[in-house]
Amino acid sequence: MIKLIAIDMDGTLLDHNKKIPEDNIIAIRKAAEAGIKVVICTGRMQSGVIPYFEQLDFAGHDEYAILNNGCSVHHTSDWSLHSYSELLREDVALLAKASADYPGVYLTFADQINYTVLENVVPDLVAYDAGLVFTEAKPVNLGTVFDNRPIFQAMYLAEKSVLDIFQAEQAELLSKTFSTVRSQSYIFEAMPKGVTKASALAKLSADLGYSPEEVMAIGDADNDLEMLAFAGVSVAMGNATETVKSIAKYETSSCDEAGVARAIETYALKK
């Protein structure tokens, strides 16, 4: 019996127009009404999740959200922190050193409220990405980046061709100290070592008394791989990468065809 459903956002809960299909909303509400915990599990920061979560309208249910690719877990009733992992000053210094010789690679950070970039002014690409999570990026330096603590995660943003070179030359070194993932063509992320969506999901499941066999996860991208491997019921979206499809037990329809709703109906609410 499924007691918790972990749902990725972009390319999963959201269609390609960044909207939640109505069928997904209906199915998620039915799951919550059936007593199943519904956990949004995303790389987004808090500001990029709340407007969508409000559309789900859980009517008093206290759910959870795993944000920042597993760095923070929140109670959705008031968005207080349930648990979190953070980057330290020496981590930020190492991350800054890694990108120092790469013009066009911008090091950004997410805390609970702020989206910051280690630059004198906010580059257009960073401003664009901040807009996707309904906030504005702020420039910081190594002396001011920790004015707002904790810092959950870091992201390197760059045009794809530039980021390809950076990743090829720096990913192996960075992965010795951080959990890293290329989450989008223009984003390479670095979290505290050992932190992934799966690590946060495993801890939350244990806190709630659920075994992996009672967890269902739905995702589409490589930052969902560990989460899908953890869950007893793993579902790849129809638009998922081939790597995701290869490890998931099941496949649903695409994000533009309310694949989340079909998965919930088939694997969580089935009699």
Rank of each mutant, 00 (worst) to 15 (best):
L4S: 12
I7A: 05
H16D: 15
N17K: 14
K18E: 11
P21V: 09
N24D: 02
I26T: 00
A32Q: 07
E33M: 00
A34Q: 01
V38S: 02
T42E: 02
T42W: 00
G43S: 07
M45S: 13
S47F: 09
G48D: 04
V49M: 12
Y52M: 05
F53Q: 09
Q55M: 13
G60F: 07
H61F: 06
D62S: 14
D62F: 05
D62T: 14
Y64A: 10
Y64K: 11
N69V: 02
G70H: 03
H74M: 13
S83E: 13
S83P: 00
Y84G: 02
Y84N: 11
L87Q: 03
A93H: 09
A93W: 03
L95Y: 04
A96D: 14
G104I: 11
Y106K: 03
Y106C: 05
F109T: 08
A110W: 07
D111Q: 02
D111H: 06
I113W: 11
N114H: 15
N114L: 08
N114V: 02
Y128W: 13
L132M: 15
P139Y: 04
P139T: 04
P139E: 03
L142M: 14
T144V: 08
T144Y: 09
D147V: 04
N148H: 15
I151N: 01
D164Q: 08
S175D: 13
K176E: 14
T177W: 07
F178Y: 04
S179G: 06
Q184P: 01
Q184C: 07
S185W: 06
F188L: 06
V195C: 10
K197N: 06
S199H: 09
A200T: 09
L204C: 03
L208E: 13
P212T: 06
V215R: 06
M216I: 01
D222H: 10
D222L: 10
F230I: 04
M237H: 10
G238A: 07
N239K: 05
A240W: 03
T243S: 14
V244T: 06
A248F: 04
T252F: 07
S253K: 14
D256Q: 04
V260I: 08
R262D: 03
E265H: 00
K271R: 13
